[in-house]
């Protein structure tokens, strides 16, 4: 083939399109700025912003698995919330076993206890994800209606099993010494735990981005989201890839559960289904299947929920719904619509 037949030609992305790409990212600082104006007091604003980001990070952790699972296999797991609850309860049990470590004045021991609790929770929820995928989800691939019903059934059963194992009462999950209390910056008091949550969430987001952009498995996931059949035709077993993603997503939900439990300090069997509402809103705002969109959506929801909780407590949840409606009016497929071959 001759060079003249096809001249190399760098396609310029028009400025307008580039801006449209970046626009959703800008929403977060814009919202923070609006929050500052509305709240007025910088110290309260800082406290609320950190709280909002922490909440957003935790929701992101729980939602990220859900959105990738959807992107890859067109599966929405309505039972995802059960993993959150199970994670929290497992974390609670482990922390209770390690009571000596959590009460110890040593920061190192405290953090090790939390780490062990998190790992245990992720292990259990990851395995639970395996069982869930094999028993509940696998037989109904491609049938959305049954999928929704069956995963909802899974949620009911899982919640009831929590009652069987841990009893019907809500439990108190206390933070270890090192994560209690606040830092005072100027006039603003910022809870230490929230900073930790922001740190973990950010690390996870960056790690996930790295994996998706720079590893073969990440490439496969992104390719699979767009066109699973083609990935199969290239010789990869998408089903196995999906199982890995499903288990990872479940484990992340478990991680989110421990973090949320430590954040709220009480855990109940139906905490998962309550958080799922926020998780769904975030996933819809972000665009089903998009990790970046999910992250931005989570930040927006976290910030908005905290600002409105301060300004007008009664409308906190409504405000997030309003945000969802507004985003969908603007972009009916969410902030980052996912390209699908079919």
């Amino acid at each position: 083939m001759s060079e003249t037949a096809i001249k190399p030609r760098i396609e310029k992305i028009p400025l307008k399109e580039q801006l449209a790409q970046k626009l959703p990212v800008l929403l977060v600082p814009v919202l923070a700025a609006v929050g500052l104006i509305a709240i007025g007091n910088p110290a309260s604003w800082l406290t609320l912003t950190v709280a909002g980001l922490a909440m957003g990070m935790m929701i992101f952790i729980m939602a990220s698995g859900l959105t990738v699972v959807f992107g890859l296999m067109d599966v929405i797991n309505f039972g995802h919330g059960a993993f959150v609850a199970v994670g929290a309860f497992v974390g609670f049990t482990v922390l209770a076993w390690l009571a000596g470590w959590t009460a110890s004045p040593s920061v190192f021991m405290n953090l090790t206890a939390v780490l062990v609790a998190i790992l245990a929770a992720m292990l259990v929820t990851g395995l639970l994800g395996l069982a869930f995928e094999r028993v509940i989800v696998m037989p109904v691939y491609g049938e959305h209606l049954k999928q929704i019903l069956v995963t909802m059934g899974g949620l009911i059963v899982a919640q009831q099993m929590i009652y069987v194992v841990w009893g019907p009462d809500e439990l108190h999950m206390s933070r270890p010494e090192a994560l209690q209390g606040s830092l005072v910056i100027g006039e603003a008091a910022i809870e230490k735990y929230r900073l930790v949550a922001v740190g973990i969430g950010l690390a996870l987001f960056l790690g996930m981005r790295h994996i998706l952009k720079n590893t073969k498995i990440g490439l496969l996931v992104r390719a699979g989201v767009e066109n699973g059949e083609m990935v199969e035709a290239l010789g990869y077993r998408v089903r196995r890839l999906f199982l890995i993603v499903f288990m990872t997503g479940s484990a992340l939900a478990g991680l989110g559960g421990v973090m949320w439990g430590l954040y709220q300090e009480t855990i109940t069997a139906h905490m998962g289904s309550e958080i799922m509402v926020l998780v769904f809103i975030v996933v819809i705002i972000g665009g089903l299947g998009s990790v970046e969109g999910c992250f931005i959506g989570a930040m927006l929801v976290g910030l908005l929920a905290n600002y409105t909780a301060f300004l007008a407590p009664k409308v906190a949840l409504i405000s997030t719904i309003a945000l969802m409606v507004a985003v969908l009016m603007w972009r009916p497929q969410g902030l980052y619509p996912v390209v699908k071959a079919k």
Binding site: K216, L219, R222, A223, M230, L234, Y236
Partner: peptide, 12 residues
């Protein structure tokens, strides 16, 4: 895979 680069398409 339009979301990937040409190189990434080839790598897969």
């Amino acid at each position: 895979f339009t979301d990937l680069t040409v190189a990434e398409n080839m790598i897969l």
